[in-house]
Amino acid sequence: MSNPVTIIMIEDDEGHARLIERNIRRSGVNNEIKPFTNGTDALNYLFGADGSGIDHKGNALLILLDLNLPDTTGIDILRRVKENQYLKSAPVVVLTTTDDAQEIKRCYELGCNVYITKPVNYESFANAIRQLGLFFSVIQVPQVNS
């Protein structure tokens, strides 16, 4: 891979962020992780100053998204990412406490690739993240060359 995958982690809870990061590392994934604690910063980074997202043309991204954010909803970020021509091919993993069936359905409809509910049970949680790490290592993040 000429362009290593960057993991964009949008998670307002720093504790969660830390736990996620730790468990990703433990699963042997050493890609760069860019943490964001609110939606606005994440959107600014993703879409750049002009809001077109052209900055990330050709970059391989993977987005870890929490749905409950202080300033915007994760759903909104998901929709905008999936509507953007440069970002829509980046896999989005929704990782959140919400386990409402409607919400899950909506996320998949909007183009979310994986939906994971954060279990309170830490073993399950760690396990889920490690699985995700395995998943990261096997998936091919498409190169956006067009």
Binding site: D13, G15, H16, T97, Y122, E123
Partner: peptide
């Protein structure tokens, strides 16, 4: 109730996670 229980769950994940740590 729905929102509160979700929001309560979030810190609980941390408490549980760091307790395991």
């Amino acid at each position: 109730a729905y929102i509160v229980s979700h929001d309560l769950r979030s810190p609980l994940v941390n408490i549980m996670g760091f307790t395991s740590e």
